[in-house]
Design a protein around this nucleic acid. Structure first.
Lengths: 329, 329
DNA sequence: CTGAAAGCGCTTACAG
DNA sequence: CTGAAAGCGCTTACAG
């Protein structure tokens, strides 16, 4: 491999000078610059990032921690992140916790040891060890999707999104509304969305049957199963609408209803959250909420870049959303 | 940051010894090992990857070059790759060419400079500059989805998959079959899939109207547009089936047909390729081909790991596929 | 405007 | 079984 020393020799300058022209800092005479550039181009020389990083403590790499890599939300977010960091010459180092909370902590430390310049975490839960690890790493850090005390967080407005959706369902005349959610160790999806739903229901003077509340695990199959349980638990007293906290589970629920010959929305209405591509093309098309995941990714990246410049903006940012009314309600 | 020197001092050994216990090589007395481990744990010491990489020329990072990050295929493949490399302690450095051929080359060089231990490229085209760049990099290298001469390639069996699908359409009694493809600078999707289609058609003694052949750009919208053009170009003489080379474009085509009040499959049958999640939940459910993307990713990673061990296996691997018959034909 | 030298944090022959 | 020393390829005060 050709190194800075080779370039220096070939261009007849010191490696200090080579470094200066490559990084565009300090004084360099025009003739020296030209000689160096010529050699650099001729050899196709690329500086060693390890050496540079060892010396400068910066790597040009952003660590991204995902709960699950092959997910529509994740890939949208990563797309958004990549769009802005790539422009600034950063790369993304990707890790996947597979929804294992322990791995979130492990990966933060790992990314730290790799000298990443910053980390974006798509958190799924909040706990003290996680918070401590983040603090120890002492790195520019963004949490996306969950509010983490003391760290810059971009969160979706789960509470109000759920309220709006529930409101809309009620306005359509539904009084018997079921709920398919996820576990409450996930503050955003599990707690906030449920809270928005329940409170809106109660404010409308309605009630939710215990047997109409089920929990899945984000998968399509779990939506199918939850729907099945709700239907089987309430013969002769079916809900007329189901509020589902994710599109994927909603699609699973729809699948079960269709199998049972129940018409959507005439017999049972369904809503999702997430605005997955699929939500638009299932039939009936699914009423859902767009969280603008890509934009959230863009924003996360921009905030991280700001933190890299020392502009300290430790705040909570609430992401916009948009209710998309389609044919499933 | 605590370094190997700190650990050495605290454990009362040389840093040579610390290195030995950390990397588990060379002789170390039990007592020395214990002292070192105790200090390492107490301090939470993590070795600097840059320093290590500078010294050893290995980084523990695998570079992955994607044509588009936020795509179902890509995320499945990456999921597969990650599953195997993570187990071996490798990380993934992700780059996205946004379908820009120039960037494929640029990223190979960039990843090289970052001392990645190997590269997996989801290629979209083949050209000499690309091939040269790969050769120059002189790194363990896997091409996924396109056959690249001289480099280990995992390819989908586009030709036979197309043949099988076309065959199936013909067997259902269709004689007037349209085609929606992509540009032929993509040898796998653009050329091979088309070839499999055309040849099977001709062997069956059928013909394809010029106006029934259209090209999209992988997007749902382009499938919609292509379908529209086909329908509008052939009033009174519509095809009875459409072979579409990707699920997304097929979904777009279905959307247009439904809007026009054409029934699928009674009026026009549709097929896709890719087995996207969506294909199962659109209505009617889409007949398609599963390419086992995740397994392809797994395999790519395994082959790369083998190459890292110097087991030289420069070969072409043909990936399996499976025709999924559903309701759109 | 330019270069010699120190140093970033590791690993690895080499010598004992 | 252990350590001193060289060196990986850079950048950055410092001195001129």
């Amino acid at each position: 491999m050709t190194t800075i020393n080779d370039i220096a020799k070939m261009a007849n300058v010191s490696r200090t000078t080579v470094s200066r022209v490559l990084n565009n800092n300090g004084y360099v005479s025009e003739s020296a610059r030209e000689r160096v550039m010529k050699v650099v181009e001729a050899t196709g020389y690329i500086p060693s990032v390890s050496a540079k990083s060892l010396r400068t403590k910066r790597s040009g790499v952003i660590g991204v921690i995902l709960p699950k890599i092959s997910t529509e939300t994740a890939s949208r977010v990563v797309g958004g992140i990549n769009e802005v960091v790539a422009k600034e010459g950063f790369q993304i180092l990707l890790t996947d916790t597979e929804l294992n909370h322990e791995k979130e902590i492990e990966y933060i430390r790992l990314l730290h040891s790799r000298h990443v310049d910053g980390i974006i975490l798509l958190a799924t839960n909040v706990n003290d060890r996680l918070l401590n690890t983040i603090e120890d790493a002492n790195l520019p850090f963004i949490s996306l999707g969950q509010e983490l005390p003391g760290v810059t967080s971009i969160v979706y407005d789960d509470y109000h999104a759920s309220r709006d959706m529930t409101h809309m369902i009620i306005k359509k005349g539904h009084k018997k509304i079921a709920y398919i959610g996820v576990g409450e160790d996930d503050p955003a999806v599990g707690v906030l969305r449920k809270q928005g739903f329940i409170e809106t229901i109660q404010e409308a003077g309605l009630e939710v049957e215990e047997s109409w509340i089920r929990y899945g695990d984000f998968s399509i199959e779990s939506g199918y199963e939850s729907m099945k349980q709700i239907v089987e638990a309430s013969p002769g007293n079916l809900p007329t609408a189901v509020f589902v906290v994710t599109d994927r589970m909603a699609v699973g629920a729809m699948e079960y209803l269709k199998e049972q010959g129940l018409r959507i929305p005439q017999d049972i209405a369904i809503t999702g959250i997430g605005a997955s591509v699929m939500s638009k093309y299932v039939s009936p098309s699914l009423t859902t909420i767009d969280y603008f995941n890509k934009e959230a990714g863009t924003m996360a990246a921009e905030l991280l870049l700001e933190q890299l410049q020392d502009k300290n903006t430790k705040k909570k940012f609430l992401q916009n959303y948009r209710l998309i009314e389609r044919d499933s309600v």
